[in-house]
């Protein structure tokens, strides 16, 4: 089975966010990781490989630092990686990314494409679904369980207030929700072998598209940090009194009850 995983490298969720002198998000000294939701996608891909045989190819967009994330995924057991790294791609928006990925993915065979349902940095939750549309294949988001048989998949996915079971034909794009599986640690042997696996860096020209064909659709005008909340009030006193006072405040002052 030819399994593709779309991977993004993001800030660690513990990272403190600051703006640099040009008002952009400061990435100096920030610890970069595989987007946590993409780990579920990688694990599911490896499970499919264990069941059906075949290979897992990672695809990503970014600069050289992304190679760290790709090597870690290779250490987990993926077979090869494609990184689209082009100076023309400067903070690409979701439309651009999806078009680029569609080109990159079209250079290989794929039976199924997996990604995380959302990236913890931009929180957009768009690229994987857009990729499916660009490739003209079905997309299923927020999956909790995946069963593949031949070229059909039965998927349990999360919806508001519950779950839904759907059936689709492959190839398709599926995005992983937390709870799909428990991602494995890369083993010692996996880490040793990762550097020997192919990590192909491709430019836009290599995948057959030029920056002129990728006009941006969304601009970020500026970034800001949230205003810090005012210091709150600690309600003192005996438990019964304090609790009564809290209820009163919520009703009469904050007017939320």
């Amino acid at each position: 089975m030819n399994i593709v995983v779309y991977l993004k490298q993001t800030f660690d969720t513990e990272a403190k966010i600051a703006l640099n002198s040009s008002g952009k998000i400061d990435s100096a000294g920030v610890n970069l990781v595989i987007n946590p939701y993409d780990e579920y996608a990688i694990e599911e891909a490896l499970k499919l490989k264990e069941k059906f045989g075949g290979e897992v190819t990672l695809v990503s967009i970014g600069n050289e630092r992304v190679q760290e994330a790709l090597r870690t995924a290779l250490a987990m057991g993926c077979d090869q990686a494609i990184l689209v790294n082009d100076p023309g791609l400067d903070n690409p928006d979701e439309w651009v990314k999806a078009e680029v990925l569609a080109k990159a993915v079209s250079t290989i065979s794929y039976d199924i494409i997996l990604g995380g349902r959302i990236a913890v940095d931009d929180g957009s939750s768009q690229v994987a679904v857009r990729l499916a549309d660009a490739l003209n294949i079905p997309s299923v988001t927020s999956i909790l369980k995946l069963e593949v048989e031949e070229n059909k998949a039965t998927v349990t996915r999360e919806i508001d207030g519950g779950t839904e079971i759907v059936e689709i034909s492959l190839p398709a794009v599926l995005t992983a929700q937390k709870g799909l599986n428990i991602p494995r640690y890369p083993s010692m042997m996996g880490i040793m072998k990762a550097k020997k696996k192919e990590l192909k860096v491709m430019s836009l020209a290599d995948i057959g598209i030029s920056i002129a064909e990728l006009p941006g659709k969304m601009n970020t005008l500026d970034y800001s940090l949230p205003s810090s909340r005012k210091a709150g009030i600690k309600i003192a006193g005996e438990v019964a009194d304090a609790t009564r006072e809290l209820a009163r405040i919520l009703r009469e002052e904050a007017k939320v009850i």
Binding site: A15, I17, G123, G216, M218, N219, T220, L221
Partner: peptide, 18 residues
């Protein structure tokens, strides 16, 4: 134009679509 939270709400992006 829109404001949207990023980095788990630790920052905001002010965006415009063309």
């Amino acid at each position: 134009t829109f404001m949207r939270p990023i980095y788990g709400g630790k920052a905001f992006a002010h965006v415009a679509l063309n």
